[in-house]
């Protein structure tokens, strides 16, 4: 019994299917207790719908035939106008990105001026004084302000 439990545990924790499969093949067929815990084919069939149980199956042909003959379903290769649109959009994107990149330096300078002016005099959370930390990473156009209640984390 301990062997069955060990096999069951290993099947749960082993990371590779091939190992699990080997373990199952090695232990389960020869173990009556483990084999009894597996549903037989007849039991599985009893909970599944069988083809013969279907009273009537919808005739798919009329609808499918209509769709096939209409040819709408076939995936047509992209037409030339579509490619033209794509190339125009790509060209515009290149122009926009280039202009943004060219204007990058003045923008950084302007934002640097703004961050230099950033000043926090007094902060309160829930009517109590709070601590404020201002982080300005170098080379990044960003300022982080961290605020926490005074005395927290101590």
């Amino acid at each position: 019994m301990w062997r069955c439990k060990m096999v069951d545990l290993l099947i749960r924790i082993l990371p590779v299917s091939a190992w699990k499969d080997r373990l199952i093949q090695w232990h389960v067929p020869g173990c009556a207790a483990c084999s009894e815990k597996l549903a037989a084919r007849e039991e599985a069939m009893s909970v599944l719908v069988q083809e013969r149980e279907l009273v009537s199956v919808k005739d798919f042909w009329p609808v499918v035939n209509r769709r096939l003959r209409s040819g709408v379903e076939r995936e047509a290769p992209p037409s030339r106008p579509a490619w033209q649109w794509v190339s125009v959009a790509a060209g515009l994107a290149v122009v926009i990105l280039t202009s943004l990149w060219l204007n990058r330096a003045p923008f950084e300078e302007a934002s640097a001026d703004l961050t230099q002016k950033l000043q926090i005099d007094y902060i309160r959370i829930g009517d109590e004084p709070a601590r404020a930390y201002v982080f300005q990473p170098k080379g990044v156009n960003m300022t982080l302000v961290w605020i926490e209640k005074d005395g927290e984390g101590e």
Binding site: I11, S17, A18, K20, D21, R22, I24, Q25, V28, L38
Partner: peptide, 8 residues
């Protein structure tokens, strides 16, 4: 082996 483990 994956199929057999799934079946198990």
């Amino acid at each position: 082996s994956t199929a057999r483990v799934n079946l198990y």
